[in-house]
Design a protein around this nucleic acid. Structure first.
Lengths: 247, 247
DNA sequence: CGTGCCTTTGAAGGTTGTCAACTGTAGTGG
DNA sequence: CCACTACAGTTGACAACCTTCAAAGGCACG
């Protein structure tokens, strides 16, 4: 693998050319034409993160825009007392740091690697230029911001009005899209990308409550939990959890 | 007051010309030049809402962009079971419906008048044209979306990690900016723009808990509540609430 | 094999939600 | 002008859910 020294002083692996980067298809970058992709590729720098490594910290000034090439990140927000929540999981093809980029302030959350992860970094000048020359990308970013805002507002409704059990069922249903597989017999298996502690932070609860709730779901035959592997025999039972009274 | 019939078939009062609209100063529209303001004024239509009247409902297709000229709105989100939360209060000069406008989907919350309110309506074609010709306005809207997203994420952290008492103190501190006044002796009075039920929906709790919590704050001398008038003798005591252990 | 961390389990307590009853207030109609 | 109604707000009692604290179990890593 070719190694070059970037102007940031960090060793990087160029990894894939933007043009052939699989992650691109899934993102707002899919609308860029060849010359744009070339420029992006020339000016991007790639960074490798070990599991748990922090890409940027809450309160840091905005560095630029990041795009996950492979692996995944988590956005974590802390309060003054050190309590934290997980805001979002970021998988290949998705950008991070854009909220701060558009806000113009400082990062209001921390980005950390959930596994070995490669991240492309785009300097603010490059991003600004690209936005100026590609209105479609701007539109795509606005749409993303708007969706994120809608999702965040949904989360607030869920967190304040529904039980942990219901929120857990909901989280499993969302996670299955990126982390689920269905076998021959129609049994769904979800491979959780995060620990129980992080799952608690994602739902806004505590690890102990997660343990008790997973146990309760097992007792009722909705799902069985083996470490990070979740087996869901009947998806309908999971959907029922969203409709129940206590939820 | 001049009355004209718009193409929507609704009677409207033109109210103020955009140029002299006080609400404008406070908003992203402050950057528009004279010709732009003229066009905006020609094509806008003004709508009057009675207290409680719904501007648009959750699930409705996006109609366009609204700007509050006078009065105020609340954004309310419902879940399937009819439980609701208040997402945001919208005061004069602020836009509503932009999240949906950029998302391209349907409204994910309901906008309703908190008092007698005048709202300017801008058709999608007009908004789109204005965005094309005023990159600064687009930047302003992106910044607003980004701030809103950050605020929504803060709310999630608050709602899941802090007590109602702490959230109430925090809400009072935010409300004082637009709804507070300080008298000669340095005593702060906040005139709540919403009912106790809505205050509960804003904090993600129940009216009974609001009543108990306000009473607890009174007992501790932090604030006294008389209907919608809140008297806060010492602001520092309110700030202390944010730092306390249980918060 | 020991250490450290994550996870689980149990017990206890606190915060909040729920239900019901009561109060106060505003609006309505006689 | 006053009774009546309707509804928001309050208060109390109780229960449920969740957090907290403590300890044990499990798993990875040195």
């Amino acid at each position: 693998m070719r190694q070059t020294l970037t102007n940031t002083g960090r060793w990087r692996s160029n990894g894939l050319h933007c043009h052939s980067c699989a992650a691109r298809c899934d993102s707002v970058w899919s609308q860029l034409d060849e010359p744009e992709l070339d420029r992006l590729d020339q000016h991007k720098s790639v960074q490798r993160l070990d599991p748990g490594e922090v890409l940027y910290g809450q309160g840091d000034p905005c560095k630029g825009l990041f795009v996950v090439q492979s692996g995944s990140l988590a956005l974590r927000k802390f309060d003054d007392s050190g309590r934290s929540v997980l805001l979002r999981l970021v998988v290949a093809g998705q950008a991070v740091g854009y909220r701060c980029f558009f806000d113009g302030g400082r990062y209001r959350a921390q980005a950390e690697a959930l596994e070995a992860t490669r991240v492309c970094f785009l300097k603010p000048t490059l991003v600004t230029k690209m936005f100026e020359q590609n209105p479609d990308v701007v539109r795509g970013m606005m749409q993303r911001l708007a969706r994120e805002l809608g999702d965040a507002e949904d989360r607030f409704l869920m967190a304040t009005r529904r039980s942990v059990r219901c929120r857990l069922a909901h989280a499993l249903l969302r996670l299955k899209d990126h982390h689920g597989e269905v076998d021959d017999e129609g049994v769904l298996t979800v491979q959780l990308p995060i620990s129980r502690q992080d799952l608690a932070d994602l739902l806004g609860t505590r690890p102990e409550t997660i343990a008790r709730t997973t146990r309760a779901l097992e007792k009722d035959g909705v799902a069985s939990f083996h470490g990070r592997r979740v087996v869901i025999p009947d998806l309908d039972l999971l959907f029922d959890e969203l409709e129940l009274d206590g939820c």
